[in-house]
Design a protein around this nucleic acid. Structure first.
Lengths: 220, 220, 220, 220
DNA sequence: GATGAATGAGCATTCATTCAT
DNA sequence: AATGAATGAATGCTCATTCAT
């Protein structure tokens, strides 16, 4: 009988319930202000139950981050399967990234917060933290693959190493995401509004330009 | 008599003393872990005195951020005065940004933290916060100017609006800075190490490529 | 039919299983740090089951104490049956006490902890607590008997009331036991080591001396 | 000016205020049940202030223990200066010990609790803990001195090593103290009552007997 | 009987901020 | 202006105990 299995599923449901509640509270109040009490109340569970599923507050936050990264990863996986030129895949990945972080700002925030968390505390050996890093690596790998495809089909010049290019593009994309997410960058957002440019279009255009630029490397 | 003036200068000295202490503590322990107690001890002042110069802990942090932005602004001001082609100015600004954040990681962290601060609390009307935003705007302006100069002297193609290009480059630069600063991105840093590429060189090359790409816009 | 009996035996087995687990955890981590979770895990039972057999954590602790006292009582019972002079019986009881608490430090700890438990909570009417007290009384009775035998056979002087002497000896023995059990008394233990004196020998000698002293009472 | 000195005195007063409050709460509710909240309330101070003077709850407890041990030490110091035979000094020390723990049951409890504290946590290097141990050593030293004096003046036989005898007597005295302090030993207390024997008399008599016994060592 | 998920009161500890001196 | 003692709200986390299944 699938008793054991049902139990596992039930457990997973609870975990998700807690994660959802945490996302809601964080979206409302930000990471710093979110307390375990409020998350518990939002989840309609007792505080003790939270600690049954997440050993620490940080673990809960890492779980949110992992969820976001995994969802993004799934989207990347779908993109890469499309039959397109490499350059178009790169473009699509960029658009996907921006689109996902736009529609899931709480996950975008989680990714940003995750970094400050990792930066200040030690999560050496923590499974969730390692998952996050692992999925982060996978995301970069999809980008690298798209670039390699482009170099194969001739849509991207071969002057640069695909890995290096992937890192640079990834950094740029992240920078633009933050520009869009963070309140303090409102004045930049206004500039974009002046051009009636939505983020997806902008990042697409940005990537096009950059990839075009590679052909011209090494010659004035 | 310069009595009043001396007082002001003395006050400024104290403020700097506190800011320096805060930077030291933050560099040592990160923003979250830094406490007013430790900052006071580091500054060899009493905790009460800190509040004489900064109304809140956040104000102290904003002051650090402003200091960092201003120092960066000064460097940008110097760069822009050099007699160079626009493209070279852009490159130099990028290198300057990376170089500054590398040598002043505490200010880099302050900029990052500033954003999460602004995002979670309301600093509407706060002088320091507005200063930060103002200096941020100036930095972007320098970048825009450099691009405009390049379009004038022909080193940068005219296909794009300089403001828009500036925003994009700014975002990319910030993304790369974070890639360099944040511990969780270590795996990206390792990739760069494999290419024996230091950050200044990378960002220079990145900007070159991107600016070259502009010429090819609108034609396959 | 022995159905009822079998049930009872099964129940007793479970109780012992739990007590054994608790002893193991306590020995490992001390009374304060031992949690019902850990005891349940050690016993390979669920936490709920523990409460089926012990109404409270304290009850479990009292059960441990009672078990220790009963085992000690059994040993005392054997000693008292030996055909020896009273003074030798007293000596043997002392050695037995020390030897038992040395080989069962978890029970020694339980006896010590039991007292602080009784002192802070009210166990009026609790069966286990009364059992403990009862067995404690029996232990003292064995000691009293041995003294009486000694007074009969002339090996112990009659100057003192046997009950009173028993109380005094009992207190001394407990004091020495604690001296041996408790970490904070390490410096005393070192002194004993300097004399190459093990606890059994020491308590034997101590009792000899004391009992000799009784003869000299009332005369300078 | 004695500003600094006054400050120190003021600080000491606060420490004592807190210790007194803690003693009161502990006396009322026992060590386990005493919370920092209640101690703060009893001291008419805020909880935060407690932590200004004691880094941990355990530190506060150790301070209580130290205070008790020091007061006892002072009393021992006075006793030892009296011009008496060694045997009388030993007797007096015993009576003093019992008398002190009778009139200061909260300190007696603190000594008992101290041991379980030390036994379960690590206070290696803690100043207060080391003070407690140090004073404990001193107490034993006074007892040893009294015995040595007795061996000198002939009131105590020389058959035993004074240090070893001191340890044994100390252990016995502690055992009797606990017998008197601890609620679970009520039945023993009742026996003493039947003999209309107060503790001081009993311990005096006990010591007399024991010391007399030493002369008879090694001969049947 | 057995389970183990859920509970929630309880607690030690932290730390930004205030204010009398 | 400077101090630093005092505050107390806030918070993460624990754990004995309960109860539906």
């Amino acid at each position: 009988m699938g008793k054991e299995e049902r139990r596992k599923r039930e457990q997973q449901r609870r975990r998700n319930q807690i994660i959802d509640a945490a996302e809601a509270v964080i979206q409302r109040q930000g990471f710093h202000q979110a307390t375990m009490d409020e998350i518990a109340e939002e989840a309609e569970l007792s505080k003790g139950t939270l600690y049954l599923y997440f050993s620490q507050k940080a673990a809960l936050y890492l779980a949110i981050c992992r969820k976001g990264l995994q969802q993004l990863n799934d989207k990347f996986a779908h993109v890469i399967q499309e039959e397109k030129l490499g350059i178009e895949l790169v473009r699509k990945l960029g658009e996907t990234f921006i689109s996902y972080t736009s529609t899931h700002p709480e996950h975008a925030k989680a990714m940003i917060y995750y970094e400050s968390l990792i930066d200040e505390e030690d999560f050496e050996g923590d499974e969730l933290a390692e998952d996050c890093e692992e999925v982060g690596r996978k995301l970069l790998m999809y980008l690298t693959r798209a670039i390699q495809i482009g170099m194969q089909d001739g849509s991207i010049a071969r002057q640069m190493d695909p890995k290096l290019l992937a890192v640079q593009i990834w950094a740029s994309m992240r920078g633009m995401m933050q520009l869009y997410q963070v309140r303090s960058q409102r004045h930049l957002q206004k500039i974009l509004q002046d051009f009636e440019l939505d983020m997806e279009t902008m990042i697409g255009q940005f990537l096009d330009v950059h990839i075009k630029g590679i052909q011209n490397m090494n010659n004035n």
